[in-house]
Design a protein around this nucleic acid. Structure first.
Length: 371
DNA sequence: AAGTCGGGGGC
DNA sequence: GCCCCAGACTT
């Protein structure tokens, strides 16, 4: 114990030195080859960190390659059409991430001459860049010793340092940032932060940590006390609300389909969808009446819903959609559509960004269940 | 501090 | 089914 230190973790210099050596040696020998590790281009590092928020590495890899191929530089993304940007993000989820990213790279073009800023204050002020992402970019792209505390780091450090605070509480992240400031290598902050996450992904995994393969085993207080399986402590469950939805595959006289662009805020902002509405079960016609009423209110047309074309379930983090899909026709086929409504052919559907829930409806159409 | 915001993979 | 994932934003 270093009683003279004001360290809340009582980490003496010898422990810190061993920690860094064990971790960085292991990382040097075991790090994965990943597309965003090809160079230190701050823009590419930034894109990767946004994509990786709440998203697995294996999921991100193909998206990262395609996205950086479509938008190779920060300027390319800044001046791109938002619809094409959303299309490149289609299926990845949390779509506000990429809308915020585009807002932020525009800000970098206008206020920072197109160069990603390298100070904590400036970079943390960018849209969509929180404490984790700021630290990740500063350390990985610029070699600045800032903590980058994500879920991996909290899991790894909760075990190694035996921290039993609830990691679902925002203030607990601050605690781990203090720990990282004591532990981080000032010679190679980039490798240190990436190594912590790599260890969490490959060895110190959530359910069955591979402690016998772990380079940090002799330094791990959790392993020492046999508590690695009880950590990290994470409380607070989220309940999922169920919503009954009615959606329409509505064909005009020319065989085109009616689609709608969602509003610019909230769930699936600016994504396209088939006309749909939530309904409450009041009687046997409730859902058809709700969908008809929705279309009448929004585009002022009457529709005939002919037959049920399918049922889709789709689960979000906090919401579950139970969607009945109806096939129907417009009674007056040539009305003037409001903004954000369009008639498109089956082939043209591919040009618009749809959430996965509505891609399932496209699949119904293309499998010719609907003809 | 608690809700909102996607989607997929592993068990 | 449940949990987790290189989290941030809003209220």
């Amino acid at each position: 114990m270093n009683t003279t230190s004001n360290s809340i973790f009582s980490l003496d210099a010898s422990y810190v030195k061993q920690f860094q050596e064990q971790l960085l040696t292991w990382y040097g020998e075991n790090k994965r080859t990943l597309p965003w590790r090809e160079n230190q281009d701050p823009y590419r590092v930034w894109v990767s960190e946004i994509m990786l928020q709440q998203t697995r590495v294996d999921t991100v890899i193909p998206y990262f390659k395609r996205f950086t191929s479509l938008f190779p530089t920060l300027q390319d993304l800044a001046y791109a059409d938002e619809e094409k940007v959303l299309k490149a993000w289609e299926g990845l989820g949390y779509y506000s991430r990429v809308r915020n990213l585009q807002t932020a790279v525009k800000e970098v073009c206008e206020s920072y001459g197109g160069k990603v800023p390298d100070t904590a204050k400036e970079i943390a002020g960018l849209k969509g860049v929180g404490p984790y992402t700021a630290g990740a970019i500063l350390s990985i792209a610029y070699g600045i010793p800032e903590p980058a505390v994500d879920g991996n780091v909290m899991r790894v450090l909760s075990r190694i340092l035996l921290v039993e605070e609830d990691i679902s509480k925002p203030k607990t992240r601050i605690l781990f940032e203090k720990a990282v400031r004591e532990l981080i290598s000032h010679e190679d902050p980039s490798s240190f932060n990436q190594a912590m996450m790599e260890l969490g992904a490959l060895i110190c995994t959530p359910k069955s940590p591979a402690c016998l393969l772990c380079p940090m085993r002799e330094l791990c207080k959790g392993f020492e006390q046999g508590k690695q399986h009880e950590l990290p402590v994470k409380l607070g469950k989220t309940k999922v609300r169920k919503a009954k939805m009615a959606a329409g595959i509505l064909a005009g006289e020319d065989g085109r389909f009616l689609i709608h662009k969602r509003p610019s805020e909230g769930l699936l902002a600016n994504m396209w969808e088939f006309p749909n509405t939530e309904y409450v079960v009041e009687n046997k016609n409730a859902e058809k009446d709700a969908l008809k009423g929705y279309l009448d209110e929004n585009i002022g047309v009457e529709v005939v819903l002919e037959e049920k074309a399918g049922y889709i379930e789709h689960v979000f983090s906090h919401l579950k959609w139970e969607i009945n899909i109806w096939q129907g026709k417009m009674l007056n086929g040539s009305v003037e559509l409001p903004q954000d409504w369009k008639w498109v052919t089956a082939d043209e559907l591919d040009q618009y960004p749809f959430p996965v829930s509505h891609q399932k409806i496209i699949r119904l159409i293309k499998e010719a269940i609907i003809v």
